[in-house]
C-alpha cells in the first residue's frame, strides 16, 4: 500500500491527471467522443492500414477502392513505408452530373513508421479488388534473438 503511494507520487503526471478528467467528461457524452475521434481519424490518416505480423515480417492491408495500380506509388526505406497515389473519377461525360456524391477523389499520401527496419529489396505490393496488400520482410539482424542463460 505504502509502496503504491510512493510510486504514484514519483510518477505523478499532471497531464495524465487532465487526460483522466477528460476521459471522465467524455464518459458523460460517449456519443460525442466516438464521433469526434472518428472524424479526426478519417480526416488525418488516409489510407488506413491493418497490420498483420508473422515470424518473417509484416503484411499490411489497406482499402483503396477505385485506385488503379499505375496511380499508386509505394516506397519503403528503412523503417518507413509511404503509400502515395491518386483516385480518379470513373468515366464521366461532359454533360453528366452527380445526383449523390459520397466518394472522395484526389491525391493522398501517408507515411507510417514500422516497428523495425525492413529489407528494402523484398517488398511486395499487390492491388486486388480495391485492397492493397504490402508484404514487408524482416531481415535476420532485426529478428528477436533468444539469449541462452548459462549457469556459471
Amino acid at each position: 500500500m505504502l509502496l503504491n503511494q510512493i510510486g504514484n507520487w514519483e510518477t505523478w503526471d499532471p497531464f495524465g491527471e487532465m487526460n483522466h478528467l477528460q476521459r471522465n467528461r467524455n464518459h458523460l457524452f460517449p456519443g460525442f467522443q466516438a464521433d469526434r475521434s472518428q472524424v479526426e481519424r478519417s480526416q488525418k490518416d488516409f489510407p488506413q492500414f491493418n497490420v498483420w505480423e508473422d515470424n518473417d515480417g509484416l503484411l499490411m492491408t489497406s482499402e483503396l477502392p477505385g485506385v488503379k495500380p499505375e496511380d499508386l506509388d509505394i516506397v519503403a526505406t528503412g523503417d518507413v513505408l509511404t503509400v502515395k497515389g491518386s483516385k480518379k473519377v470513373l468515366e464521366m461525360g461532359e454533360k453528366d452530373s452527380f445526383l449523390k456524391r459520397e466518394l472522395t477523389y484526389g491525391n493522398f499520401s501517408r507515411s507510417v513508421k514500422l516497428p523495425y527496419r525492413i529489407n528494402p529489396d523484398k517488398v511486395e505490393a499487390k492491388l486486388r479488388n480495391g485492397i492493397l496488400t504490402v508484404t514487408l520482410s524482416r531481415p535476420e539482424e532485426e529478428k528477436p534473438k533468444n539469449i541462452t542463460i548459462t549457469n556459471n
Binding site: 477502392p65 452527380f98 445526383l99 456524391r101 466518394l103 479488388n129 480495391g130 485492397i131
Partner: peptide, 22 residues
C-alpha cells in the same frame, strides 16, 4: 457502401465502393 450516383442523358450510373469483394 459509399455511393456516387451519376446521371447522364440516357442512363443513371451507381458506383458503390465494396473493397475486397469480387
Amino acid at each position: 457502401p459509399r455511393t456516387d450516383i451519376v446521371e447522364s442523358e440516357d442512363a443513371v450510373n451507381i458506383w458503390a465502393e465494396m473493397p475486397g469483394l469480387d
